[in-house]
């Protein structure tokens, strides 16, 4: 059997929880063989392959995942603070480079300080570095230098989540709740 080009890299990266981005060479191979990989991951590992025009990723049935929650809180607070600062946060995510220092300033002066201090991955500069390194490993951000980064299009997963949540709340639909993790 002949496997698609970059098969090993595709499987290894997706299985390690990475987002594959459309500017990467192996993304095209994955896109060309979308139906094969959808079936491959479903049959082999019972995982769902999510294909978007700009990125793709795998997800498991078990959604009790703290990393996703921490990233969601991080992006939510940053969006709120950027907007409060008069910046268009979607444009900033798309085109701007952020420095760690800038992020620290936003978080230190945030009105969500109670939430930040109670979260061990966000409470101080060091823990935020660790979270950002984790996000870089998963291709949610791209580190341009040691202390600078840009967002990749993978941030849209979290933005879509917020949009859906808002629509549910506006329509008055009850939100499915998690057991506190």
């Amino acid at each position: 059997m002949v496997y698609p080009a970059h098969h090993r890299q595709i499987v290894e990266e997706l299985m390690s929880g990475k987002f594959l981005l459309n500017n990467e060479e192996h993304f095209n191979s994955l896109k060309e063989n979308e139906s094969f990989y959808t079936e491959f991951f479903k049959v082999s590992f019972d995982l769902e392959l999510i294909m978007k025009p700009e990125f793709c990723y795998l997800l498991s049935k078990d959604t009790q995942e703290n990393f996703s929650r921490d990233v969601s809180i991080f992006i939510a607070i940053l969006s709120y603070e950027l907007d409060r600062d008069g910046r268009n946060f979607i444009e900033s995510f798309d085109f701007n480079e952020f420095t760690f220092e800038e992020i620290d300033n936003y978080f230190l002066n945030s009105s969500f300080i109670d939430l930040i201090e109670s979260n061990k991955t966000l409470r101080d500069n060091e823990s935020r570095r660790t979270l950002l390194n984790g996000m870089a490993r998963r291709n949610i951000i791209y580190k341009t230098f040691e202390d600078r980064f840009t967002f990749t299009q993978a941030y849209k997963v979290f933005v879509e989540f917020a949009k859906e949540l808002a629509l549910k709340r506006i329509k008055g639909e009850p939100e499915t709740q998690n057991v506190e993790s």
């Binding site: 997800l59 959604t63 990393f67 939100e175 998690n178």
Partner: peptide, 17 residues
Amino acid sequence: EFLRNPYKVETPPLLKG
């Protein structure tokens, strides 16, 4: 809405480590 109670809302599912 999410930040009001971030531990009570289901966040986007990702691949579990």
